[in-house]
Every structure is written in C-alpha cells, then in structure tokens.
Amino acid sequence: MNGINLGVKKNINGFTLTEVIVVTAIIAIVASIAAPSIIYWQRNLKAKQAARSIVSTIREARERAISTNTQYSVQVTPSSNEYVMKRGNRRYNTPFSNFSTVTGYDFVIDQSTLIRGGDCISMNNLYVQANPNGSLTLNTPDMTTTVSNAMLCVSSSSGSERYAITVLKSGLVRMQKQ
C-alpha cells in the first residue's frame, strides 16, 4: 500500500481565511480585556518605584553623612514632583544656603505619579538633614521648626495605589502601602 493514492487529498497549503479571521478576533478580544489592566499595573509600578527611590535616596544621604562626617540633605518638592540630594560643608549646623547638589541625585518623577504630604493632599516641601551621628533632622518648609517625624505620600495619578514614606528623627525611613 505504500505509494498508492486512494483519492484523499490533504490540505497542506495553510490556513483558510475563516480560520485567520477567527484567530485575529480572539486575539483582539483578549488584548482589549488585558490592556486596561496593563495600564493600571504600569501606573502603580511607577508610584511604587518613585516611593522606593525617595526612601533609598534618604537612606543613602544618611549613610554618606555617617561615612564622610558631613551633613547631607534631601529636599522633596511636591509642587514640581522632584527631589534632590545635597551635601553640606560642615558636620553640624550647615546653613541651608551652603548645601550643594550632589551630582546625579536630582530627580524629577514621572507626571503619572504624585508626591504629596502625609495626608496625600498637602503640597508642603520636606527637608531631611542627615547628620554624621545617624540621626535625621526634619524641618518645616520655612526651615524655622524641627519636627520629630514626617510623612510623605506617593501615589499614582488615579490615586488607586498609595505609598506612605515615614521619616523618623532617629534615622528610620520606611515605606508602607496604604
């Protein structure tokens, strides 16, 4: 029976037009269902990355202050969605005007992410000074009052994901999902 053709034709030329249209329609339906989830996930990921970046910058400023025996500061400005690490020129009591920006530590956060005060509404700036003894000095925006702890809120523009950054005078900095 080898080599004998019984009149049965096998279609080995490819797919029919109907099959291609059905598969394309299924792919389109799945993509339209998945797209909003992917966009939501991406926005939330940006907020989480921004919060982690602020926390690591404050921690790095503290580590640098300890290792170099010089004050460092991190200035968070919610109104422009940016934060910057600065280096002082003294061990303690460095006037704010004597801090200079550390190269490579001037960050602007994507506009799909919002930085606010601890209540997730206020636009108050936060000034964190890292001291050589490992403590953090937290100042009010006018630099006249030192506070014992401070909180920042980083959220996606939709507000669906919020991360609270807590900064304590003792030097503890932590991030927590709200």
Rank of each mutant, 00 (worst) to 15 (best):
I58Q: 00
I21M: 15
N69F: 07
S56G: 01
G7F: 06
N124P: 05
T144N: 15
T77V: 13
Y127F: 09
I165E: 01
S155I: 00
T137G: 11
A164K: 15
Q42W: 06
N149K: 11
S160V: 08
T144A: 04
R116L: 00
R87N: 11
S73N: 07
N5W: 12
G118D: 05
A65M: 13
K10G: 11
P78D: 04
I109Q: 02
S122H: 04
L138C: 02
K48L: 11
A150N: 04
S56W: 11
V23L: 10
Q75G: 04
R43Q: 09
R62L: 08
V147Y: 03
S158P: 04
S148T: 14
D106E: 11
E63P: 07
N69P: 07
V84G: 09
V173I: 04
S67N: 12
S56V: 05
I165T: 07
S97M: 04
P36G: 01
Y105N: 12
V84T: 15
N2L: 09
S79E: 10
D142F: 07
Y40Q: 09
Y105E: 15
K9H: 08
A164G: 03
C120R: 10
S73F: 00
S37Y: 15
I27G: 15
Q42K: 07
Q75C: 06
N125C: 03
T24K: 02
N81H: 07
K9V: 03
T16I: 04
Q111T: 12
A65R: 09
A164C: 06
A61H: 02
I121V: 14
I38H: 09
E60T: 02
K169L: 02
S170L: 02
Q178R: 14
V76C: 01
I33F: 12
